[in-house]
């Protein structure tokens, strides 16, 4: 998926983060020679296909986000083409306030058009 400058700015506006690095190309260029870049959690919007590892009839439709860990290797700039690949790394059951809950741990790797690893995100999704 291609990263568009306008989308970076719209994302920054939505999270109400006025940092010029993700809002204004001219000001960003005065601060960093590489210019505008995406804020830390921007890649979140890039969705991968439905996870192959989960069965078709996975009976838990409701979900909550349990947490997310990012590791960054390269900055993301307008014009980059990012590919996201998600795999399930763990799956376990727990009982809690909402009854029986399934914890689904996934890791997503994001690579750019130069085949460079840009970031990884490990996510915990709670299905119930």
């Amino acid at each position: 998926m291609e990263v568009e400058r306008g989308h970076i700015k719209a994302f920054a506006e939505a999270i109400e983060d006025p940092n010029p690095l993700w809002n204004d190309e001219n000001v960003a260029r005065q601060k960093l020679s590489t210019g505008m870049m995406a804020p830390p959690t921007f890649l979140r919007f890039i969705r991968t296909e439905r996870l192959q590892e989960l069965p078709e009839d996975f009976p838990y439709n409701r979900s909550l986000d349990g947490g997310s860990q990012w590791e960054y290797f390269e900055s993301v700039k307008p014009g980059d083409r990012i590919k996201a690949v998600t795999t399930v790394t763990d799956l376990y059951k727990k009982s809690g306030k909402l009854g029986e809950m399934i914890f689904v741990l996934t890791t997503t790797t994001y690579t750019n058009q130069f085949n460079k690893l840009v970031a990884t995100q490990t996510n915990t999704s709670i299905r119930y």
Partner: peptide, 21 residues
């Protein structure tokens, strides 16, 4: 993320960011 990037400014680099909900 904003808390950290406001603090480190353009010369700092964020390497890891995690949160639990």
């Amino acid at each position: 993320g904003q808390l950290i990037t406001d603090w480190i400014g353009p010369t700092g680099t964020l390497k890891k960011l995690s949160a639990q909900y």
